[in-house]
Nucleic acid binder design. Sequence first.
DNA 1: TCTTGCCTTCAAGTGTACTTGAAGTGTTAG
DNA 2: CTAACACTTCAAGTACACTTGAAGGCAAGA
Lengths: 134, 134
Amino acid sequence: MNTYTIRDLSQRFNVPSSTLRYYEDMGLLENVERTEHNQRIYTDEHIRRLEGINCFKRTGLPIAKIQEFYEYESNLDEHIDDIIHLVTDHENNIQARIAELQQELLHIQHKVRFYNGIKESIDSGSPKPVWEDF
Amino acid sequence: MNTYTIRDLSQRFNVPSSTLRYYEDMGLLENVERTEHNQRIYTDEHIRRLEGINCFKRTGLPIAKIQEFYEYESNLDEHIDDIIHLVTDHENNIQARIAELQQELLHIQHKVRFYNGIKESIDSGSPKPVWEDF
DNA sequence: TCTTGCCTTCAAGTGTACTTGAAGTGTTAG
DNA sequence: CTAACACTTCAAGTACACTTGAAGGCAAGA
């Protein structure tokens, strides 16, 4: 089984080692063994765990919820409904967030077109476009 | 011209009045007149401004950038390139964010399916599904 | 051997975006 | 007229997710 130092993971995931220690304090990384000199030893388990954590983080799940998820994970039979609730809830949140962003993107694109119109009018000396709500 | 109290806007936009004062301190709301008793008077201009601010906020533009935007807005001829750069940049960020969320959504949906499979296996006593990366 | 450098812990600091509290003035209902 | 309530300012506090600093241990190279 492969093992990794804190430096290895820090480089692999492009996070400072302080963050990895912080995740451990927060209960996101568990069962981290130590060398005889008290240095952390990570395994492929931890690599997979960090990939999961990053996926959750990129989708905006707060640390406390990620912690909850792995707590349920470690006692799945008892918490299967909880974990399904958590991930389904998160799925819905992401879908709602995507829909909201797509809606707001239209407004931002409207602004981009508007200011490009203003620039053209400045360059050509023609009358400035008038802002129209939508 | 319509005028509004801090309470009016607070209710209309569902934010505490402290937040409206904070936006003013941060330079997002400008030219707020006062009554003879020093109470803030907002106009339809401020309503439009707040709609703009909220659009930017929902898309994750930080306060400092929003402030910059309205600074450019108030001197458009001199800052037309800056403002086009700012909104175009923001448009690209939103599109990248949507793409990222769509990608990660697939992973979360994979988890939802996986745990539903686990639940079925618990309920029926059949063997548990095995997690497969993708 | 000594210095460089990475490691450890624990506590305190940072940045963003508010939020709350204290102290004081003004307005309104009974 | 007075109590309750709304408003003001300014300063300090909160929440989240780290980030940095202090103090010290261990080990390999000059």
